[in-house]
Design a protein around this nucleic acid. Structure first.
Lengths: 340, 340
DNA sequence: ACCCGTGAATGATCCGTTTCAATGAACCGA
DNA sequence: TCGGTTCATTGAAACGGATCATTCACGGGT
């Protein structure tokens, strides 16, 4: 910057003004400075700026599983909006590991990042509060909180779970299963509870087998399918609700390998309605979440909170709860009566 | 930090030493300082650190398409390694947009980021060189360069394209098609050229129809399938090679909609072998790239280059070229002779 | 000729850390 | 008892910009 100032025969203060308040600088001077910048290829040092400003024009994002296309879409939704507002987005992948999650948040705190979009693994309010104490706004993503401690955006997973189970019951199934885990994940818990409610309401003669998986990955689905297929046919469920589409697709593969036909021998419904659900071996029924909207809306709330904080205005935390939607495809087509 | 120093009754210099060279500080003092840090909940300001150090402990990553699981896996591979080395990773999504790509790189430059893993949309050596002039090491990902100007990691797409086309020819097809685009993408060009080579070598009676798409997305595949299906049967290809698995899955959906059966009426092979390829409606043949290895290896090269730069040692740029592998699945099963 | 107002440019100060020369204290051996 | 070491600690000078009170120059009005 000094070099630029010397070349343009002005002070460093003027160079700074050219960038930050161009109207305070005369046209002639501004032009000289701009030429000098171009000639030297100077690029302002963001760390110095941040140091002075006290905060950065970056937004941090922490997600549980980057290889789940659901999160890729949420990120994309948030990024679209933030990019237009001149913010850059840093995505960190906690990989469903609490200590990695903590590390990522700490790094954002050290960076005095402008704000954080956080898809938490567990409910850990203290992590959010710690950031806020440092003056960093946080919005919880993919988890519609009940509290008024922070903004959050998500869908009503209880309703979603109920929708899924009711759909299976409607198709004539009585022995259902829920596959998902770990149950430390609030999303998994809520979806399961929704399913349980639906099953309870259906009354006698219906059951819900709960199969817990260590992760929400495709592989978890494959191995759960093996377990379920190994049950004696009289006990085996005839329909499975998977906590997300990755698991559902894994189940589909696993059942096929085990010689069970979907949907005839086994119906499957997933959750999220990622793009691949429709393209699966058997097109997958699913519960649709407005993935990009979740990202976009989270970013909106975050920006609002950041502006309020800047202006020292009061801010009322909002909870946005999108409504999930059933998308029925072939994987849950009504079972045909057994031939013979 | 001043507060910590006062509470511990030492100077700020000592607080800094506790963090950066603990062995220069007596045990008693260190303990007092650590207690003060804990009591005040102080977290060092990374911008100030960076300002002093001149560079950051962050790595930037620019990818073309975050919603392509291929890149998600590459990112994961890189992240794994870098996380262990205490680096944080910032992922930016250029969304196949040259100007967004430029903006992302400029932001990294302003941040004086420690290094960049760059999956470029086009060959734009000047973008790499600009960063390097600023002292920021860059490794090109998913694109094995020929030059010695920079490190790069990728697979040999020419070989991959040839493998795919040869496989289709081996299955008895003569009229092939290549679907992919835009052809500004080096990956697309190379894969197509590989296919062309294979077809040329097969000689008379074989043909390759090239269908160019505006993007490498699933939707592009769907609409291309419509075009191809609309051709008169005598001209219509019997096998399609898609530039990546997203397109291939889209084709699969499109052909099914159009009433063509895969693989009987139309064989399909994709590229990347993403996890969903095996789970597709018809399990998808594909050309496998070692996705996580590409990410991990890129990160390794980047760290090596960063260390060399730090120590002012000479650095020889490396070009890692993984070998792609054919994975044959049902979508290219040999066509059965027509019944009737 | 003088004063005042206005717009443009300046330069010192500060942001929070690291680094390094300098200070000081304690200890050793002669 | 004194010089010489070693070890722990200190204080000030960066790092690269933003900010803001101050200075300067110029014009218009009286």
């Amino acid at each position: 910057m000094r070099d630029v100032a010397m070349l343009a025969r002005v002070s460093v203060g003027t160079v700074s003004n050219v960038l930050n308040s161009p109207d305070r600088v005369s046209d002639a001077t501004r032009q000289r400075v701009e030429e000098a910048i171009a000639k030297l290829g100077w690029v302002p040092n963001e760390s110095a700026r941040q140091l002075r400003a006290g905060r950065s024009r970056s937004i941090g994002m922490v997600v549980m599983d980057l290889s789940n296309p659901f999160f890729a879409d949420v990120i994309r939704g948030a990024e679209r909006l933030l990019y237009d507002e001149q913010y850059s987005v840093q995505v960190g992948n906690s990989d469903s590991d609490l200590s990695r999650e903590l590390t990522l948040l700490e790094r954002f705190e050290q960076q005095r990042i402008g704000g954080v979009l956080f898809a938490p693994i567990e409910d850990r309010a203290e992590r959010v509060l710690k950031l806020r104490r440092r003056g960093i706004p946080v919005v919880i993503v993919d988890r519609a909180g009940t509290g008024t401690d922070y903004c959050s955006v998500g869908v009503d997973d209880l309703v979603g779970g109920r929708l899924a189970a009711e759909h299976l019951l409607d198709q004539g199934h009585h022995r259902l299963a829920f596959v998902g885990g770990p149950s430390t994940l609030a999303q998994v818990r809520d979806r399961r509870r929704g399913a349980e409610l639906a099953v309870d309401q259906a009354g006698e003669g219906t059951s819900l087998l709960v199969v817990s998986t260590p992760t929400t990955s495709l592989e978890a689905g494959v191995s759960s399918a093996g377990e379920i297929a190994a049950l004696p046919e009289a006990e085996r469920p005839t329909a499975v609700f998977a906590a997300n589409d990755l698991i559902a697709i894994g189940l589909l593969q696993g059942f096929t390998t085990a010689g069970l036909r979907v949907p005839d021998d086994m119906a499957i419904i997933g959750y999220d309605d990622i793009a691949f659900a429709a393209a699966a071996a058997v097109p997958l029924s699913s519960i649709r979440q407005p993935r990009e909207d979740i990202g976009r809306k989270s970013a909106e709330l975050l920006l609002a909170e950041m502006e309020a904080a800047d202006a020292a205005l009061p801010h009322v935390h909002e909870t946005i709860r999108f409504v999930p939607q059933l998308v029925a495809r072939r994987s849950t087509h009504r079972r045909k009566p057994r031939k013979g």
